[in-house]
């Protein structure tokens, strides 16, 4: 290991500074600062529609911030040339909320896809790797199915197998637990933890499932209204968190967290004449 990599080991893998991002006239992020440490599970939580998926897309370089910087492994994502960005993405895995499997290929070919695109492995090597990855998510038996024949939860697990196919340095999980039964949820929780501990993969986890998320993450960021509201270890958040965080984590209906998308009062809206 070189001197530089040694130093890099202590710096955060992802460093977000002063991030501002706008959709139309609405600021989704307004001065967001986040550090994602190496080799840990970092959870990003927040109410639906706060921009968690958007944040992952910004980190992956699919969206461009209006201001601020995002560095991944010391490289400013949005200052990279296209080939450099693609080289960086090869080391990032992303699990899409929808799975995003290629619908014209079988489960097997979907998991083999990144291997075939980016490595020169023989088909027999690829076969071994694909079966191992599918085994890890419990779907080795489903390798012959087409994506249209999978349930939502199965599709997401196949997508996870695909995301880890190239053994990336970082995986971003967008809602991995949605639509999983308690057993596969438990398996997924263990899998994410194991990937992290055994291979020292950095994990970024976006989820609403408070209990599971707090159970496996080392560090939690709670975001709302385009800013970090609270951050710290799960214990810290559960015990000494502010009013906002306590309401969010315990899922209480009353408190400072708004359930509604910004809107005028219900009364005015109802009384207003139809256009």
């Amino acid at each position: 290991m070189t001197q530089q990599e040694n130093n890099a080991d202590e710096s955060p893998l992802v460093r977000i500074r002063g991030l501002r991002f706008r959709r139309g006239s609405r600021w989704i992020f307004d001065g967001l600062d986040i550090d994602i440490p190496r080799g840990r599970v970092t959870a990003i939580m927040g109410p639906s529609g706060t921009g968690k998926t958007t944040l992952l897309k910004l980190i992956g370089g699919q969206l461009r911030p209006d201001a601020g910087s995002i560095e991944v492994d010391g490289q400013n994502v949005h200052a990279l040339s296209t080939p450099e960005l693609y080289r960086l993405r090869m080391r990032m895995g992303m699990l899409f909320q929808s799975g995003a499997l290629l619908t014209d290929m079988s489960v097997y070919d979907n998991v083999a896809f990144p291997l075939r695109e980016h490595t020169r492995l023989t088909e027999s090597m690829i076969r071994k790797l694909v079966l191992l990855k599918l085994e890890a998510v419990g779907l080795r038996g489903a390798r012959g199915l087409m994506p249209s024949e999978l349930s939502g939860g199965m599709a997401r697990r196949v997508a996870l197998a695909r995301a880890i196919a190239l053994d990336p340095m970082m995986i971003m999980y967008d809602e991995p637990f949605t639509g999983q039964d308690p057993i596969s949820m438990g398996v997924l929780v263990q899998l994410i933890r194991r990937l992290n501990d055994a291979s020292r993969i950095t994990s970024v986890l976006v989820s609403h499932d408070v209990a599971e998320t707090l159970a496996i993450s080392d560090l939690v960021y709670v975001i709302s209204d385009g800013r970090v509201v609270e951050s710290g270890t799960p214990e810290h958040l559960q015990h000494s968190g502010g009013e906002w965080t306590r309401q969010f984590i315990q899922g209480l209906p009353d408190g400072p967290v708004p359930f509604h998308f910004p809107a005028p009062g219900l009364r005015e809206d109802l009384l207003e004449a139809a256009p």
Partner: peptide, 21 residues
């Protein structure tokens, strides 16, 4: 439909350029 179902985004994140592939 590949765009609507995020398959094109998925390819980009797998470092495969959908315009080429």
């Amino acid at each position: 439909l590949m765009k609507a179902t995020e398959q094109l985004s998925g390819l980009e994140m797998m470092a495969v350029n959908p315009q080429h592939r």
